[in-house]
Design a protein around this nucleic acid. Structure first.
Lengths: 148, 148
DNA sequence: CTGCAACTTGAAGTGAACTTCAACTCAAGG
DNA sequence: CCTTGAGTTGAAGTTCACTTCAAGTTGCAG
């Protein structure tokens, strides 16, 4: 068995066939076709799907995931090094997200528990109070300055 | 100024007026009305909105958030202790999420970088390989056994 | 070669979380 | 008083990430 049918691929990846077709329409994964027009998946595509699901866990949109996957070579099967490079970049995203959530965890009780959580002058929401004039609200915490 | 108009409340909370009305329809926040039927918000409601936005960051649905907020007293303004209790429970959720993401971070490079990420026999996806017969796929990592 | 499960498509439906719109009312400064 | 910006409503629209459906086709076991 060289390639997988969509059913087998779905079973192995844990993603529904309908979602796989959707991912393909969206340009996130690829398949070849049999003479009868049925999809066949190479096993290496499993890695793409794994990456997609992991990235989704981190809260990344399919749009962004597609952009990331677009950095993989299109004309050859991505090597271990290709994936390592991609993964490395995402490790940074994870680090950031983890740091954010740790700050959340460390400050949640203190900040919500106290009277300060008025969302316009709180170290959690607006650390350093630097952007006070830059429009109100919980912008820093919810959309951290680093990154898009 | 005792209470806030929806505009001011939106400005201070960083949430659009339309979203605030939506939250109210959904029973997540409350307002009083003027004689002319306009909404007026107490400042303490800012804490609710803050909680909502933070919980959303953790990936919690408004449904679940509503359930959590329902534990606050309805007949009186929540005290510091009320919020502290609630926050404490959510600190645990955050801890779990952080732990998941750390596992993700620690294993991402190794797992995706190597050839193992076939999503059916990988310590990241299926640690211990215990649920091999329990349906295939990236179930453990994506829906960790602890919790719902 | 037949039967049937598994596949194909485009279109429409879903649910979450909002936003936008139209038509109207309120609040407050000049 | 009057104007004007801010607020009100219900209904409909939007985006994301899929799922479901109907109608038809393919692949393979028997």
């Amino acid at each position: 068995m060289e390639t997988l049918t969509i059913g087998d691929f779905a079973a192995r990846s844990g993603v529904a066939p309908s979602a796989l077709r959707y991912y393909e329409r969206e340009g996130l994964i690829h398949s070849t076709r049999t003479s009868g027009n049925q999809r066949r998946y190479e096993r290496t595509e499993l890695r793409r799907v794994a990456f997609i699901r992991i990235a989704q866990q981190v809260g990344v949109s399919l749009d962004e995931i597609r952009a990331a996957l677009a950095e993989l070579p299109e004309n050859r099967t991505p090597t271990r090094a290709d994936w390592a490079r991609l993964s490395d970049r995402w490790r940074h995203r994870l680090e950031e997200k983890i740091a954010l959530m740790q700050r959340l965890r460390d400050d949640l009780s203190g900040c919500i528990g106290c009277g300060c959580l008025s969302l316009h002058r709180c170290k959690l929401i607006n650390p350093g109070d630097a952007l006070a004039g830059e429009g109100p609200g919980a912008r820093i915490l919810l959309n951290p300055p680093s990154g898009t």
